[in-house]
Amino acid sequence: MASGNRSQSAQGLTLIAPPLGYALLVMAAPLLTILAYSFLKDGYLTVIREFTLDNYRAVWTDPIVRTVMLRSLGVAALVTLVTVVLAFPVAYFLSFVVSPSKKSMWLFLITIPFWTSYLIRVFLWKVILGYNGVVNSGLKTLGIIEQPLSFLLYNINSMVITLAHAYAPFAILPIFIALEKIDRSLLEAGRDLGESRAMTFWRVTLPLAMPGVVAASLIVFIPTIGDYVTPALIGGGKIPMIANLIQSQMLDLDNRPLGSALAVTAMLIVAVFSLIFVAMNRRFLKVRQ
């Protein structure tokens, strides 16, 4: 039996060896490089191979870094909130209203935004929200405004709109799956035991959909913290997020050790948040078999 298990696990290892090797090469190696850089000294255009904690000291005491990091967390939290709140009704509609035979078609429709690249979609939001964009010229034509609205673009609101749109399908799918798993007789039981539709939703549907909501939050939150394109284009570069700060340290100022320390710090903060989410999800998942 034991030998059978061993040969089976050996077989498994052989099977995953190529992707594992690839992952080590393209993920672990750069990560380790960044980690190593973050403890080295910066010489202009070079990296001096001498151990130091100065980079971390600089990152953790710099008020600009703190501001930008907090802004990244804030924007990511806001995007997550907006995305999940908007995705929930869509997922609910898909699961409870759409007839079973049409569900796959609806899921297919939801993936349509992915047919164009993320960069192009971000550019399109610029076209929509810009000074002479679709919204402004439309409102002007209708005579509602005389001067174009300037608060549409180059601020946090526009970044939230863009990111929430970009990550919507990632939030809809896990919530949809969680809703699909809910035994419909549980909802009838809620009604049967005297609760209205709204209270049944609150006491039965929502708690049982929480694993999906937590998963959706995680999937939206993590990549938006590190998003680079949207702050650069929609934020107009004036409201940088942590990724933009790392980029400017690494490339513009050529301070790779400091950039690396920033990157490692950001990664640690994301890791802490992810672990909180995972712990939450474990609590919610415990109720399922």
């Binding site: 035994d183 007789s185 009838e188 039981a189 009604r191 049967d192 035991l193 005297g194 609760e195 209205s196």
Partner: peptide
């Protein structure tokens, strides 16, 4: 509506 009727149900799946 079901929630206002003086009936209660034991479901097949127990729910």
């Amino acid at each position: 509506p079901a929630n206002s009727r003086p009936t209660n149900m034991v479901f097949q799946s127990y729910a």
